[in-house]
Design a protein around this nucleic acid. Sequence first.
DNA 1: GTTAAAATATTATAATCATCATATTAACTG
DNA 2: CAGTTAATATGATGATTATAATATTTTAAC
Lengths: 191, 191
Amino acid sequence: MPYPEGHKLKVRKHIITSAAKAFRTHGVRNISLPYIMKGAGLTHGGFYSHFENKDQLVIEACHFAISDTIELLKKVADKHEDQPKIQSVIEFYLSSVHRDQTEIGCILPALSGEISQLSEEIRNAYTREFKRFLEFITDMAKVDASTGYALVSSMVGTVALARAVSDPKLSDDLLLAGKTQAKLIIASSKG
Amino acid sequence: MPYPEGHKLKVRKHIITSAAKAFRTHGVRNISLPYIMKGAGLTHGGFYSHFENKDQLVIEACHFAISDTIELLKKVADKHEDQPKIQSVIEFYLSSVHRDQTEIGCILPALSGEISQLSEEIRNAYTREFKRFLEFITDMAKVDASTGYALVSSMVGTVALARAVSDPKLSDDLLLAGKTQAKLIIASSKG
DNA sequence: GTTAAAATATTATAATCATCATATTAACTG
DNA sequence: CAGTTAATATGATGATTATAATATTTTAAC
């Protein structure tokens, strides 16, 4: 067989990486397959020898993006040993760095509004990935499920809004208030 | 002059109403001008005699949608005299009714993810309308600005996620946790 | 009724998209 | 190096889009 062992798998991975990056920054519907393929160093024609259709790619990209974010947050948590891990994670998630670096940021705020309008398959995938993220945060914060829901909703909503508004001061203030709030949520659940 | 007095203004209002309804349900980019015009009982050709372009319509639709939501929430608040107004508002905003009736629901969760990818003009308009909503909630809850930020971020994030996930139980639980959380935010700000 | 301006509809344009068919290239095997 | 075939590129299709130009309809005023 031509092409080295695992070549196609590697290319497939490149496409997923390019897609995840694009989706995180521009959403799903505004990103074209030609654009994604170009980001992977390819032309658009070969796409369908790798994926059944665009939906399938969205599903895989969501999975990759959440795995990527969870890994990143784990690293962030391990970096600061002087405070509880969840503290570091929240401070990063609600930082201006995370708000601004959408390309490598959490995909949940980026797609939260759009998902409800996409195919059932994509919604199911998003739900699966959301649950994964939810579990990660809930475990790390050592809180009950309900508190975990509130915490993640608040985090996702804050980042989405902080990214949306064009007033830099307001955006910063949203992040700050979100951080204060998140700490309060955790503290009050332990009281 | 042909056509009755104020005819064009009335039609213009119809277009904005149709657009706001469509945007709240399907976002901005996935909705076409022909679709909006059909919703107003017209064909697409006449659009440009009413608006400069699609962006202009988005801006006006956002303004209308937020006004509409604020009015609705005021009515909801006035309905229940047995509890603080903010309580009623939060209970409605985080209800399954509001989650499911996207057509007449708050536009903030629907567009929160998409806005950052749209034109500067639209972002500015969204920011203006967001501030208007923020002020409305903050005043009604009688909390300081920072608490208002946290409260609205939590509300918007919760509804966006509750609309996004395809698991009905999870969606309900998100709303429930959001309500509990919102009340906590307000209570703690007064302590 | 006729007219004329305003409002709306029809049609056109050029771009972009997802998807598909076909042609070309790359690289392992012998 | 030649042959085979997987991987990729090129090009096509048909749909949809925002926008614009032109044609038609509507209705108030005469």
